[in-house]
Design a protein around this nucleic acid. Sequence first.
DNA 1: CGGCAGTTTGATGTTACTCAATTTAAGTGG
DNA 2: CCACTTAAATTGAGTAACATCAAACTGCCG
Lengths: 244, 244
Amino acid sequence: MAKFFEIALPSTCVTCPHRETGFCGTLFESPSEYSRADRQPGWQRFFAARSGEQIVTRNQVSEDVFMLCTGWAFRYYQLSDGRRQILKFLLPGDLFSSIAVFEKTFHFSVKALTEVQVNAFARSEIRAKCAADPDVQSAIANSCIADAHDATELVTALGQRSAEERIAYLLLHLMPRVAAVNVIREQRYPFPLRQQHIADAVGLTPVHVSRVLSLFRDRRLLDLSDGVLKVFNLPELERIGSLK
Amino acid sequence: MAKFFEIALPSTCVTCPHRETGFCGTLFESPSEYSRADRQPGWQRFFAARSGEQIVTRNQVSEDVFMLCTGWAFRYYQLSDGRRQILKFLLPGDLFSSIAVFEKTFHFSVKALTEVQVNAFARSEIRAKCAADPDVQSAIANSCIADAHDATELVTALGQRSAEERIAYLLLHLMPRVAAVNVIREQRYPFPLRQQHIADAVGLTPVHVSRVLSLFRDRRLLDLSDGVLKVFNLPELERIGSLK
DNA sequence: CGGCAGTTTGATGTTACTCAATTTAAGTGG
DNA sequence: CCACTTAAATTGAGTAACATCAAACTGCCG
């Protein structure tokens, strides 16, 4: 199934602008610098953000649709009392939200987890491409379908499953996505998450996440530290975490 | 914002076929009778289902898109150990899932809560209308946006909030939707849910749901029994249940 | 009258949270 | 290279929230 960026973009602009030849666009140093600048039709627009920096805020309006090019970020829902629910971890090639192609008000926030680079597409251009090209149309539809399916599974995991199961589910869900954008050797996955992020994603406290991860470590299931996830016993992890 | 059924359908077929003049279609007595019959182009197709009857099963494939016409139903995700997560309660006018316009495999199940009647649209016809008419297109897009937003809020409620808050949230979320298809007098809402359904929707046990509802009753907040929800103190309910 | 499904109530158990102290790791400036 | 600082992870003790199990109660229907 073709991914959005494989179809909607000229091939020279698929990933990080620095790595491609024939790139024609602007790289802004920060989200705010990007948001001050004027649009130039036909040019690709990118911006960088530092680790921990907020990129999108809920109820913000934008004429652009964002895609992560490099690094990790996460989409979340902020409550006024400080709690937040992480909705999805974003990896290179991910749209912040597929549905954003159709609406200009974001109903979520996005924060950078590592240093990131973000591509900003003009929504009008995407929709024009979508109307003109059935392949683009189905790529976007597929992206929306995948988002909806992920949401269904996440709701089920949070509503029905224990702490161990939820954490196992999160890791299992991320592993193939990480593998799609990294070379994985010996079951070692780059994983720049703090335990706080895991806690906010699965609805637990960081303290409890630490206990569960220690338990997994003691059982020689996996080890998550120093930004690397090492999986020792995948079948057992799947037994715990799979939604079946 | 126009609803899907106000735009996609000839006005004679908007709701229950029996109540409309000029209706041209077929009403099947059960889901299985419907699924055995052949499609007749240009005819509306409806079927009835009894209370508790399963209408859609996960991984089922269909060329039709379903909309609930009368009664209540619910969409859910079934786990093999018997647990299930209710994803959404469906009311008259609701598509089983907006995203079903774009994919023919359901990734959820649907069961009737009361006696229901369901309208089956041919997906191909909807997509043709969608391509031809921008109003239909935006009605479907809006429906997808609303679904995505609901999913975000539900994930947040399940991940971050207490039993009381989740139940209050569920009721608050349903009340305006119920009010949109029923005349509400004196804050009395028809509510054909068993406590088991509430439990499966918010990720609690029926026993705990009973305790929380008793607590709400003792506090003169609301009373939910005999299929009727009576709200006595809406501001307090909103204070507890709102995601802010 | 008996049976059944749903709800309520009580007693007890488990999971996960809270609070606080300790350890570890990663800088940073001298 | 070594204090010093700071953020993150770990550990322990006590507690709150929710689950589990079982019994009793309700209304309804045959």
